[in-house]
Amino acid sequence: MTVNLTLVLVAASLLGCGVYLVLERSLSRVLVGIVMIGNGVSLSFMVAGGPAGRAPIVSKGGDTTGLTDPLPQAMVLTAIVITLATTAFVLAMAYRSWQLNGHDDVQDDIEDDIVRRLALRDVTSEAYSATTSDYPGDDSSGDPGQGPDDDPLVADAAETAEREARST
């Protein structure tokens, strides 16, 4: 199978630029990236379809040599339609995000962030139990950068009372 090098190069550069844009934070840039990737993939289907030829329209009993393979073109058409719908949806989402937040940046996972901080704090508190109370004034473990304890799953009323007694 001979391959059209121009098509391959164009597809590759479209994909490369698309990937670069997808790595951005702003949803509209990501969208442009997605569209570029989509076009690059469509071109690669053209490569998959083999060498170009005559239009694949045959009358009954007509000559079928030298026709372009119509199947990849049908697939590309489907893919283009799907990309179009996706573009519309992502645009709507970017607009909604702008309405709600004033920007269209892809945001971090909040809950995940909370869990991560809880975990970070737990690490230091382990060390804390080993070093505190015996050495007053030693606050090597009390890292002020760490978050406070808000893990209520294990905090029952008695513990709360104990802590309040200490603090007063």
């Binding site: 704090r121 804390y128 009390g142 890292d143 406070p148 893990d151 104990e162 802590r163």
Partner: peptide
């Protein structure tokens, strides 16, 4: 103050 003991861990509540 804000130190809380549970399950053998001591949690600080600074910051």
């Amino acid at each position: 103050g804000a130190v809380r003991v549970h399950r053998g861990h001591v949690h600080t509540a600074a910051g």
